[in-house]
Design a binder for these strands. Structure first.
Lengths: 265, 265
DNA sequence: TAGGTAAGTTCCAAATAGTGAAACTTAGTT
DNA sequence: AACTAAGTTTCACTATTTGGAACTTACCTA
């Protein structure tokens, strides 16, 4: 009723607090959270207590700071395996990265945003979570546009509506119309470019990862700089990427309903 | 009042449901969850709705199945970076694994259980998440006993109380008394063994990872089989492991309050 | 096509859990 | 000792949650 859309229920509030703690990316004190929070002191306090007690947050009584808890780490592993194509794609990303020698991104759609779920750098393999887990805009990234172009019409429209169309660079598409036109081109071309639309000097080529049913599972991109590549030379990588994308899709498909695997450590 | 200890609040229940979905490790239908759930149909249904609406779960209307959602994936990444020593320890595990050539585990305490947060196998580096994320007992694993031995007295007592003392093998410690005695030995010895206490034929040597303040950050173990090693030959690896543990602790320390890092993808 | 069964969804009065202003307790100043 | 800020608890008030039961699909089966 007041400002944000979804604010329902205690669970929602608790999750907001979780997000808030996560956003700091480091242990936070109560007062810091209180400042950036909409909730009254007592409410925030109790939510933090609940979350801590539940193991979603950890509390260091020395520093008086809250951090994300181990229960979340445990869920993290499960989430990774269940909700993401990342574990399936991992070996293929490795191979592609090795052969192409440029930055490789694996992404999925998260509401109206791009969620990067994995990344490879060329020379020195980059620390897994260093950038994966970040979100980016859909309308001005290669993977974003690629995934959007092959999305089902209703989802596509919704996402197009929800973009901010902030002009990051001279090449950024800044209207729904321009974006729709671009999506048409991408569809007929079969892949997407990012022509310095998000950051100057950064270009990329991207493909959607599609299930047999045509559902968008994710996106794969190879990113480089204008100093080292042109769109044309990037486009030469597409056949290679297509193979990768095909294999990921195939593997992802067969992973849909695996029987529960018995493991012991 | 009924059976389990903590069952407080709506948030707790919702998180239980999350865990339950996670435990399946694959998309689950409502009826499957209902079967393995303590909650009445309507309650479970509403909890699932809330979680789905919050993005913690995703719902595939085609298959009618729930899976862990993208919001959870996002939180997961953060938790991994913030709450876990795994990202810090990763390169050291790699090195240790390479040099020692046996299975290496990295673990943390999660309530009264051992949470394995990373693992290395000797010959072929094992897929990251294949077994990490699993939990095991404290009282009959090397890392468990190592972490417990150096825990603060109040936490230690609590954990000792909460163990099940199930007799996995002939060597399993099956009483609080025996465990306390073992912890004394471990403390004076400086490291812990697992002498086939969890699985026959499997032995390991383990060290705690301690912060400068003496707080238990995690545990490190090297596991082998009785066919290839004895406790004595495993003990020879301790100095090597001590170095690794020291480096991990040092790095972890400096990560405690990093300034917020600006990143772009 | 009717009739049956299981799965999923909605209802609503009763019960419970959550709310937040304010009072209180620490811990750290000056 | 008096002041201040940070964190914690209280309690009457309310809003949310609860769950049995009824309802609606959707899919079998005869």
């Amino acid at each position: 009723m007041t400002e944000r859309s979804n604010e329902a229920g205690t669970v929602g509030k608790a999750l907001n607090v979780l997000d808030q703690v996560a956003a700091f990316g480091r242990p936070v004190k109560f007062s810091e959270l209180l400042e950036s929070s909409d909730y009254p002191k007592a409410t925030l306090y109790r939510l933090l207590q609940t979350l801590t007690q539940q193991g979603m947050l950890s509390y260091d009584s020395d520093s008086g700071a809250y951090a994300l808890g181990v229960r979340l780490v445990r869920l993290a592993h499960q989430a990774w395996r269940t909700a993401s194509i990342a574990p399936v794609a991992r070996p293929y990303l490795d191979a592609l990265s090795l052969e192409i020698g440029e930055t490789v991104h694996l992404a999925q759609l998260d509401h109206a945003q791009v969620l990067y779920v994995d990344k490879r750098n060329a020379a020195v393999p980059v620390e897994m979570y260093s950038q994966a887990g970040k979100v980016g805009p859909v309308y001005c990234t290669g993977v974003g546009k690629a995934m959007l172009a092959w999305s089902r019409i209703d989802a596509q429209s919704r996402i197009i509506e929800q973009q901010s169309y902030h002009k990051f660079t001279d090449n950024t598409l800044t209207s729904r119309r321009a974006l729709r036109a671009e999506l048409d081109i991408i569809c007929s071309r079969g892949f997407a470019f990012d022509n310095e639309e998000h950051e100057p000097g950064i270009i990329c080529v991207a493909l959607p990862i599609l299930s047999q049913g045509g559902e968008v599972l994710g996106g794969l991109s190879v990113t480089s700089t204008t100093a080292r590549h042109s769109l044309d030379t990037l486009a030469e990588l597409v056949p290679h990427m297509k193979t990768t994308v095909g294999r990921i899709a195939e593997d992802a498909e067969s992973w849909r309903f695996p029987d529960q695997i018995k493991e012991h450590v």
